[in-house]
Design a protein around this nucleic acid. Structure first.
Lengths: 210, 210
DNA sequence: AAAAAGTTTAACCAGTTGGTTAAACTAACC
DNA sequence: GGTTAGTTTAACCAACTGGTTAAACTTTTT
């Protein structure tokens, strides 16, 4: 495709670097990731990364920002504040499941960030988190007011939703190995969508519903 | 305390190394952890680690084994197969919450292992996992038979329980920072036990109850 | 008490890795 | 066409890090 847009070459190079970095950080974590490998994956000289973006930590934070602002945008754009709270919560969970399922890197990076306890948590990230928590708080409050949800702590419900999905998504290889050990083991495969996502959705709805 | 037991010095040294290693791996991850730091924390010469245990990966796998076999033992020992399924599930969740709350390193290490997708997952670990999944499967089946639980996929319920607790535990610093951003933000602090653990317990019970 | 077995230590090292640099190359501008 | 600004590259390097070694030290055994 002959440069579909008159976009600057700079942007294309940057995008290749970001893609490579996201995959590498997801697979190996910040400390395990090698700048040489990111460069190789991006088909770019290592010095080009330093020229365009900066050092390893800066590159990593850019990736984090891209990911979490993307999630927050998705969730907020797809929320319809006038529909019933149950529908809104289902949409919220379904969107999240879709994002995680379409991009396993998200799950890995979220887990690692959570494990690091948000040491050196950049301010911009906090704002995206706040947007997400704000939304689910609003949805749950809505449900409580209309009498269909019981009183819960929104953060916990949110952590339940995201924790369940991320763990389910990433545990796929472990579950495959386990299939040989537990007799009645129900292997649910790698996919989060469809039946599995639907079950998670139902479980969480069951948890908050009055 | 003047050597409370005639235990060999070896065991004491080993224990110091394991403690230091667990903390370091939890804080920094496998790649981020430095053997020199583990040695310093354990107040032992680095070579002593290699003499008693072996290389970094071996040390790490020992820690993993200690942690997960401990969890599996705790859960199985505290299960009372003749009590009602709801009680058994509550005990299961409460035990897990207690373990995670008493030792934050568990949560961090679990998250990182999950993020790595169980690459080079040692066989012994698989057996402990199998024991845990076997137990919760039995409990949930029990509840389905006695008509109090709906039909669910045990692995998913288990991942929901563990995911929720681990995420809640480790998100404490993020939540503190967030408290400044979201107006109606409900900061639940660092503790998992008491109210928060009780709420998680109720949420999960609500999710699986008919 | 001396020999043997077990444990600790300081010093060392080779391979790796994040980051730099100066020169070459390319696109834009006059 | 030539000059300038922007971009890419190969080669390089200093700091770090997992792991080793040989010698010293301690405990157990005979």
């Amino acid at each position: 495709m002959a440069s579909s847009l008159p976009k600057k070459k700079r942007d294309k190079t940057m995008q290749r670097i970001f893609n490579a970095a996201q995959k590498t950080f997801a697979d190996k974590g910040f400390d395990g990731a090698r700048m040489d490998e990111i460069a190789r994956l991006a088909k770019v000289n290592k010095a080009t990364i330093y020229y365009h973006i900066g050092d390893k930590r800066t590159l990593y934070e850019r990736i984090l920002n891209e990911i979490f602002s993307g999630i927050a945008d998705s969730l907020l754009q797809n929320d319809d504040p006038v529909s019933p709270a149950e529908e809104r919560l289902r949409t919220f969970i379904r969107m999240l499941a879709g994002l995680i399922d379409r991009n396993a890197d998200l799950a890995a990076i979220m887990l690692r960030e959570q494990a690091s306890g948000a040491k050196d948590f950049p301010e911009t990230l906090a704002q995206d988190f706040a947007r997400i928590i704000g939304l689910i708080t609003e949805i749950l409050d809505d449900g409580v007011k209309t009498g269909i949800f019981k009183q819960t702590t929104p953060v916990i419900v949110h952590l339940m939703a995201i924790g369940t999905m991320v763990f389910t998504k990433m545990s796929s290889p472990i579950r495959s190995k386990l299939a040989g050990h537990v007799a009645a083991f129900d292997n649910i495969g790698n996919r989060l969508e469809n039946e599995v996502a639907a079950e998670i959705e139902d479980l969480i709805l069951g948890a908050v519903r009055k």
